[in-house]
Every structure is written in C-alpha cells, then in structure tokens.
Design a protein around this nucleic acid. Structure first.
Lengths: 331, 331
DNA sequence: ATGAAAGCGCTAACAT
DNA sequence: ATGTTAGCGCTTTCAT
C-alpha cells in the first residue's frame, strides 16, 4: 500500500496527530518538529489521502463540473478557466460529460455528490424539480440557468440575440428565422423570451424553427427548413448549428450572405474559419467558468449565498450577414 | 448531514452490516430483508459514500483521465468514448486538463491518485522517469506513449505519417516539410522516427521544422517558415497546426494546394470545414478511449498485465493536397 | 506543544 | 442469514 500518516509519524518519532497538524494547522506545531515531520514526509513521498480527510472534515477540495457535450467547442474555454481558477484556490476540478442526456446528467451529479464540495452545472437540461431535489444532496452552481435559490452565472444571451436580430433588421431583413435549441435549455427559452417579447409586433417577422439538436448535424437539418420556409436570415441557437446551416445551405446551392444571412451564438474558434466567416454573438465563457468556481466556494462559506452573476455578450459582425436581396421572397 | 448507512439500518430494523451486504453482496441476504432494506434506502434517499467504501476496499470505481488540452478537438471523442465505456463498466470518469504543462500533469495525477482506481494519461509530456515514479503511486495507462512496463494504447501514427509522405511524393513533391510537435511528445518522435527512417535516402527530401505548439497559433508561426524555406508540401503535427498553416498561408497569398500542399493528422471535425478541405490522417480516438478504459480495468484484476494495444490510422485524401507546381522551387 | 482517544461512513472477517 | 468487531486514513476534541 501507499505511505500513510502512520508511516510518517513513525519515521519522525511523533504521534500521528502531530503529523496531521503539520499539514492542516502548521502554526500549532513547534518549528523544529515541523521540519522533522516535513522531512520524513517528503522522504517517504507521503501524500495526505483527501478522501479520508474529507470523511471527517466534510470538505474534499474537489469540484465537479458537468457539461452537456465536451465536444461542443463552447465548453473547453469555460472548463479550462474553471480549472485554472480552481487550482488557484487549491481545488481540483473533475469534469463530466452527459452526452446531452438529462438522465445521465442527474446520475453524474449524484455520483459526484459525495466526492466533491459542489458541482458546477453548465446548461443543465433536467427539470427545475429535479434540480431542487439534487441541491439537497450537494452544493450546486448553475451556469446559464435561472433556478430560484441557486447561485447562478448567466450570460446575457437574450440581450445578445436581440442585438443580433436588430443587426439583421438594419440590413433590411423582414423574414427572419430563429433556430431554437433543445428542450430544457434555458438559453433557448431566454432567446425566445427576449426576441419575441421585443419584435412580435414590429414590422419584421421572426419565425421560430425548432427544437434543433445543438450540433452541426442539427444545423444541416435546419438548413432544409430555412430553404423551405424562405426566410432571408437566420439566428441559430449556437455557432455549431450555424456552421451546420451554412454547410447545408452551400450544398443546396444557397449563397451566404447573398441569399441568406446567418448568425450564430458563442464565437467558438471555428466561426473564424468558415467561409464566409460567421457573424456571431460572443459569450464570455471563460469568465463564466471562473465566476462559477468563485460562486461555489463563496456558497461553502456562507451556506445561503445565492448570488447571481450576469455576464455581457457582444455581437461580432463578420461576413455571413449582409443586406437582404432586392427581390427576396420574404421582403 | 446526508443520510448514512446507519439511518437505513435503523429504519429497516437491521444491523448496518446487513445494509452494507444488501448493496455489495445481495445474494448473502434474505430476499425479504433485502426488500425491506432497499425500501428504506430509497425512502430515505440513501446513496453509499464511495469515498468511505473506497477507503476500505481500495477501489473507488472512479477513473481519472488526463489530457494536455481539452480544447484540442482531437480529445473530446476520446473522452466521450472513455466516459461511455467507463459507465458501462460501472465506473465514473474524472477528466482533467494540464494546459500542456508537464508540471501540472504530474500534479494532477498525484491529486487524482488516491481518489481513483487508475489514471489514463493521453499523450503525456512528462519524462519516462517521472512516469515510472508515478506508476508506483497509482495504476497508469498511457495513450500514445511507449513506456516499458506500462499498459498502453498506441495509434499507428508513424505509419500514418509514412502513408501521408508517400501520397505527397506520388504527387511529385520532393521538398517536403515535416512540422514536428512539442518536445516530450511521443507522437512527434514516432512520426520522425518512421518518416526519416524511411525517406532520408530517397529522392524526396524531408525537412524537419519544429518544435511547434500543437495549436492553430503554432500553425500560423509554422506557415512563415514554410514560405521562407520554400517547401512545396507540409505534413503538420496535427490538424490544428495544419489549419493554422493554411490560415497563415492564405494571409501570405500562398495558395493551397496550388502552391503548397498541406496534410494534417487526426481528422478532427474542422478539417472538413476548411476551404480547401484538409487532407489528413485519421486517428481512431474513440477506439483508443475505450481501449484505455478496458486496459486499466484489466490491469486491476491482473496486477502485472501490461498489454499494448495498437490501433490503425488511415489517410483521408481531401482537397488540400495536389500535384507539385511545374516550376516549384523545391522541384 | 504534543499525545490519547473517538469517530467520519463504510466493509470484511469472524461469530453465532 | 445476520450481528459483532475491528479498522481503512485521517482530523479533532480533550487531556496533559
């Protein structure tokens, strides 16, 4: 077996409680003794067993992070930022992927529950009820979700969508498609809430099209609807979908932006690689990752801290949007 | 606090050891009692504390997975496949990202060590010595690395590179650049070993260019060298680098594939989105993820199992490679 | 400043 | 088939 606190105690001629104190409350132990213990520990390669100490203290110094799809380029920057922040604050981040499955999501949180101090849930797909049940079992922070009583980091995605639609209308588009996301997605609901709240009575008509799988494949399917319904512009649920739409459109011989303008959300790296380059709403995912870690750690200290952090988004105009064509069907 | 085995024992009127058995060895407990215990457990919402049981059994049913950069699209399919396989085999996968830093890599493995049954190390950057030291502390399986005494999953990346260079030579290229990867990368060494072993004496001359950061940014830097040294074809360390090279080349007014042919490695999703579409060597990352999990679990049962799994790669010819130009400098 | 003892939640002999 | 006991590696009173 590995080296335990007992081995260190023996090697340095003190009681195990002194060894323990050397690591958890160094000021309580004589400088000389401390040196001896530390020397023995490093000699033997001793590493405290966090699982064992967690059993007593109730703190593991681990944080769980659950995302729907690690393959969605939106998440890695968030994950890396959270990981960095966690490390700064002496915590270890465990990442888990749910494959867009709410069942797996719940399972994953439960499995994490006893092994972490809390779980960061990014864009959770489960219902509010289940979320509330889970928060009894483990501290939770949600990203891009608004649940009463839960600390949350929210990106102002509705506002971003509004700006995007305004951009489209300024270009003369009056038949605009809104590619909605998966059921259960707060971001998708939020986009619809703001966009339809703002524009339903205006001159430009926005048509909801969805739900769509939040993937390139989902976008290709959506492209067929875009062509069929004859809108001249589309705001997609995210960049992945937008990229799929552009692919689908290209295959159907529809030109972007001459025939149809396309806007995405997230500003993932590929959005600069497509031809034309994608106009998109950039979301501050790294900031969100850091904020989520901070919020979790804050809620540890103050059990009923339920702060909400709101982060701004920004429209990045590139080449996939342009003026509506003179004789466009929707015009 | 959460509900413990003691609460369940009390609620169902049995001793805690019976409750324990109900979960770990159901056949040893009377069907009727079992029902009662299970009922009480689900009533109370009891979940065994894996950390606590791990302390005794030495098995946590957790697996750690360490990658250099979760933002490299090569990894997500591997991670997802490993996660799926782990779930099938009743294990939970913890993912960690090292940010390409060997120090962090080692730290991360150590932090995982006591909380998992073993760690899957993908493309580790640390030295063999450190790797060998670590394997004393925790079971290890390496992916894309060849360390004596360690179970490993290796993609036949050298062979893939050889095929790619042959493809280039068949197109008439005789001045071929080889964009090498980061120091410490087995894949990069492997590519060089095979390519230079095979082609150093042939008519076509292959020039090593590197090391390069395994990112798009690294590729942009490499593009400048490609232009400066006047090669007519380049095999990049991976697709991300290849994409960066194409971007850099485009900005410098160099056409792909008319002026320079570019080949990547990995076949990540973006490689189908670039214009021209990228010719690349596809690596079976999902299969590697599954194999790594299987190997780890096998090595648990048979302490000195050190199997090596080798996976085939395949050249995917798309549009970024073409015949060498008639008057090319390198010709 | 250090040691002794109890116990975190659980499993695994060993009894019965 | 079930209960008793010891103990995994560690922290934390409580003594001294």
């Amino acid at each position: 077996m590995a080296v335990t606190i007992r081995d260190v105690a023996q090697a340095s001629g003190v009681h195990i409680s002194t060894v323990s104190r050397t690591f958890t409350a160094p000021h309580l132990v004589n400088a000389e003794t401390r040196e001896r213990v530390l020397a023995a520990a490093s000699e033997l390669g001793y590493r405290p067993n966090r699982a064992a100490s967690g059993l007593i203290t109730g703190r593991t110094n681990n944080i769980g992070l659950v995302v729907a799809d690690i393959a969605n380029p939106f998440f890695p920057p968030l994950i890396k930022a959270a990981e960095g922040r966690a490390r700064e604050r002496d915590h270890l981040l465990f990442v888990g992927d749910t494959d867009e499955d709410p069942e797996v999501e719940e399972e994953l949180v439960r499995a994490f529950a006893k092994q972490v101090d809390g779980v960061l849930l990014c864009g959770p797909r489960m219902t509010d009820e289940r979320l509330k049940a889970l928060m009894q079992e483990v501290s939770l922070v949600v990203v891009n979700r608004d649940v009463k009583g839960l600390p949350a980091v929210m990106m102002d995605i509705g506002e971003g969508a509004r700006t995007a639609v305004e951009h489209l209308r300024a270009l003369g588009h009056t038949a605009i498609g809104l590619g909605t996301g998966p059921r259960g997605s707060w971001a998708s609901r939020e986009i619809q809430r703001v966009v339809f709240g703002q524009f339903e009575d205006g001159p430009g008509q926005v048509t909801a099209m969805g739900p769509n799988a939040p993937t390139e494949e989902g976008g290709r399917a959506l492209a067929r609807r875009v062509v069929a319904e004859g809108v001249t512009a589309l705001l997609a649920y995210n960049d992945l979908v937008a990229v799929g739409v552009m692919e689908g459109l290209a295959e159907a011989g529809v030109r972007v932006p001459e025939d149809v303008s396309v806007v995405g959300i997230d500003d993932i790296p590929v959005s600069r690689l497509t031809r034309p380059k994608l106009t998109t709403v950039s979301t501050p995912s790294a900031a969100a990752g850091r904020a989520a870690v901070d919020l979790l750690l804050a809620s540890q200290d103050d059990r009923n801290a339920t702060a909400q952090v709101r982060l701004r988004t920004e429209l990045i105009v590139r080449d996939s949007t342009g003026p509506v064509a003179a004789g466009a069907r929707g015009g």
